[in-house]
Design a protein around this nucleic acid. Sequence first.
RNA 1: GGCGCCGUACCCAAGUGGCUAAGGGAGAGGUCUGCAAAACCUCGAUUCAUCGGUUCGAGUCCGAUCGGCGCCUCCA
Length: 464
Amino acid sequence: MLKLYNSLTNTEEEFQPLEEGVVRFYTCGPTVYDYAHVGNFRTFTFQDLLRRYLRYRNYRVKHVMNITDVDDKTIQNARKQGVSLKEYTAKYTEAFLEDSRTLRIEPPDIMPRATDHIPEMVRLIRTLEEKGFTYRKDGSIYFSISRFREYGKLSKADFSGAKSGARVDADKYDKENARDFVLWKAPKEGEDFWDTEIGPGRPGWHIECSAMSMKYLGETFDIHCGGADLVFPHHENEIAQSECATGKQFVRYWIHPEFLIVEGEKMSKSLGNFHTLRDLLTRGHSPESIRYLLLSVHYRKQLNFTADGLKQAQASIQRLEDFLVRTNEIAKPEDPSEDFREEVRKAREQFIEAMDNDLNTSAALAVLFEFVRACYQQDSRNALTGGDARIAAEFVHEVDNVFNILPPKSEELLDAEISEQIEARQAARLRRDFAEADRIRDGLASKGIQLEDTRDGVRWKRIH
RNA sequence: GGCGCCGUACCCAAGUGGCUAAGGGAGAGGUCUGCAAAACCUCGAUUCAUCGGUUCGAGUCCGAUCGGCGCCUCCA
């Protein structure tokens, strides 16, 4: 039974979707004003893992992720560059999708853009107006939190006494309560706006997620996931808008991955430790090592993202790859032994137990590595049969369907030139011309091809 | 100030009161090898920031102290 930590109740709960076998899943996507950074991708990579694991557990997943393509930053940046909002956000949306592909994050089933859903937002705001949860000021429409008794239930904050806060500059906001938030913003000189039945303007940040999630997933859906910083105010406000409009529970399980820090410090532009995915790739880190590092630490724990961590992640992946090379070497289509079949069954059980426990990825990976070592031990006693090796490799791939950390199968066939060289080296070794043999080996190494002389012949692999 | 998280070996990290404190990296020994590299095997915490307490039993629960961090600003 899958258990997830629900930040609405601050407890681990057994996951039971509203509809048997189907998970309605919404994730807060990027605001496309710049390239996404590793911190963003920790969250997106986790969401990908959750989605894959739900599927592994035989759920059908309907995943919706929004693209925020209108807000202060996108508008400002587009103006600065003198391009249209659409043109500007299209560029970063494309970059985001490309980066996601690099990290092997599956695209959502539906990826709605905020600007394509203005009518839905307007309708939602109208409903809130009709029900008396809003007020207007200078062409903007605000949500009044004092009219929603449960406001603060997600962030566990008590706003009942919070009048116009002393610490907040009340003149800056024409609001009845400093915590009230804007649903619809009056147009500003020279900024994009929409002419609608509730007046000209553009949507506030929070309303898009409410409108789009409910449009595609229904008024109540199963999982809503987003970075820890979104708990307040973003998700708190989504709850307020949605539940006041429908009178129903909005989301059943709220999942919030923690932030990451970089080399022990908060990631920020001023500290110069702000990494986009592109930066990291330029520095020679593999997408797999980044993905591995991001997934290897439990999602609710702060993750310290370091160059050393990436190196260690790469080494861990290498161990798994080497294992697959070995098992492929001896795998045969024959039946595995009954004992070994039992080994795999046990490993699978432990893997599921770890993942069911609120996605304990560290423990799940430990299960995988323990399994690998046990296989090697058996192999070193010459007790791993061809059939055993075959299902061992299958199990590793099964786990990797969830984690997706093993590099895609590279072309198994060597370039003719390379295999020629390997043969030439073998010939040189046979006539004991080791100088020549070593020269060829070094030549291949410089091309990233590493040779391993084993009892069964020469094996090669690409090194990263 | 309010809410919350964390401190486990050289590094990363699991551990949700009870067999000998997972796993990975690094390191040390060994196997293999023309040599080397790689790979594989073996070995690494009498101890869980500190101090008290609860308990038959605590890394795990409670309290205090020290240290690190996050959110409370339209930052994932």
